[in-house]
Simulated scan of single mutants.
Amino acid sequence: MRYLNRKINFLALVLLLIVSFGCFGQKKETGQTRTDLPQAVVVRVVDGDTIVVNLNGMEEKVRLIGVDTPESRVNKRAEIQSREGLGDTQTVVELGKEAKKFTVSLVKPGDKVYLEFDVQQRDKYGRLLAYVYLQDGRMLNKEIICNGYAMPLTVPPNVKYEEEFRKCYKEARENRRGLWKE
């Protein structure tokens, strides 16, 4: 009888470990909806790294932390990006339009998203600064970089995912994804 109890306890422990590791693995692989974060509804995509959401009944412009996509309109920033080596200003704008199209493929008006803030919640223009999570648990910021439609942009003190973003960027460039195809 004592041997049988030990065997049952051992099997119960093994089963518990299998279930525990199985659950953790599943969350990591498929993503986990971040319902613990503030929920917002997408109103529109402004460009590759900026969206407008309805948060608590107010429209807020959200700048994605850690992400820098090419500009989708001719402006001073597009000229700077041109000088940084993305091509002439028109090329920068074309790349920016591609980046926006990719972002639009991930978030559409009416989609629920979850916002994670870092140290600083707003930039000097009054935009919310956030990591945006999709319904399936993927982080929009990271998806844009990993798929090759943005460069990482680190602006302290918001540096929580800096290393992850740099790793994604390097991999996207090496594997010629998104804007880096040619």
Rank of each mutant, 00 (worst) to 15 (best):
R2M: 08
L4P: 08
I8N: 01
L11Q: 11
L11M: 12
A12I: 15
I18V: 15
I18A: 10
I18N: 00
V19S: 07
S20L: 13
K28N: 14
E29P: 01
L37T: 09
A40P: 02
V43M: 01
V45L: 01
G48R: 05
I51C: 02
V53K: 02
N54H: 12
N56T: 06
G57Q: 14
G57Y: 07
E59S: 12
E60W: 03
V67H: 00
V67A: 01
T69G: 02
E71L: 02
R73N: 07
I80H: 05
I80K: 13
Q81R: 11
Q81H: 04
G85M: 05
L86R: 14
G87K: 05
D88H: 13
D88R: 12
F102N: 03
F102Q: 02
K108G: 00
G110C: 05
D111R: 00
Y114A: 06
L115N: 00
D118K: 06
R122W: 03
G126M: 09
R127W: 07
R127V: 01
Y131D: 05
V132Q: 08
G137F: 12
I144Q: 01
G148S: 02
Y149D: 03
M151W: 09
P156K: 11
P157K: 13
P157F: 14
Y161F: 09
E163M: 10
R166E: 14
C168S: 15
Y169P: 00
R173Q: 12
R173F: 05
R173S: 01
R176V: 05
